[in-house]
Simulated assay, not measured.
Amino acid sequence: MRDLLLPMFGNVFQKELIDEIEDKAVLKNLKAGTTLIDYGKYIKSIPLVLNGAIKIVREDEKGHELFLYYLNGGDTCAMSLTCCMNHKKSEIKAIAETEAQMVMIPLEYMDEWMKYASWRQFVFRSYNARFEEMLSALDAVAFMNLDERLLNYLLDVKTNTGTFEIFKTHQEIATDLGTSRVVISRLLKRLAEEDQIELHRNRIEIL
């Protein structure tokens, strides 16, 4: 596991902490579409993402989902950290957008590893980064037109998956953005007419 940890976390964690992670954590491989964390479940392990993209979404009282942010190599999920520390059920869902690899850290080591300065700094940076991303998501809902949100969403998917081709249905995009499939289809058609994207069967290509 060390050869997987060092490229992503070797400059983040001190050697003693890397040793502990190698000894205590479990390596996990996910296929695209796999749910890592689900609503209403207790989180017993914290993911440290080695590679791939993990999509984080949140559900409202009516069951509508809203896309919040992505986790990539070197990240962890601050909201899962919060649930673990407070022994709360998960209020988010984490889904593998692509094939992904991560190490899962058992809950009991969260507090114990606070003795390591590099772990404390990592946790605080993660909280700050995810908080800023959630603010951006809220700003988009509050202040952006849906066509702007859609284009930003497509660019965000491209950045986090590393490809200009997006294999998502119009319904999946509508669910992430909290709107209807009909509206998304109309806006995608407009983006295609503006030569910003090309529409294919079950595939969107960003130009």
Rank of each mutant, 00 (worst) to 15 (best):
A142G: 06
F164W: 05
L150D: 06
Y127D: 12
I166C: 05
D139Q: 03
L151E: 09
R186W: 09
L154G: 01
A137M: 04
R130P: 03
Q171S: 13
I184K: 04
H170T: 11
S126I: 01
E172W: 03
Q171A: 13
A129W: 02
R125V: 15
R186S: 14
A174H: 01
L151A: 03
D176I: 07
E132P: 00
D176W: 00
M144L: 15
V141F: 02
H200V: 10
Q121Y: 11
I197R: 08
S136T: 11
W119L: 05
A137R: 12
D195R: 15
R186G: 10
V141C: 04
L177A: 06
D195V: 10
I173F: 01
K189N: 15
A140F: 00
F167M: 12
L187F: 03
L150R: 07
V182R: 10
V123G: 04
T159W: 10
D147M: 02
A192N: 10
S136Y: 04
K168R: 14
L138K: 13
S180G: 08
L154Y: 01
L146F: 00
T175F: 06
F164M: 13
K158N: 12
F124A: 15
S126Q: 02
V183H: 02
L191A: 10
L151W: 11
A142D: 05
A140N: 08
E132M: 09
L187T: 06
F143K: 09
L188K: 10
G178S: 03
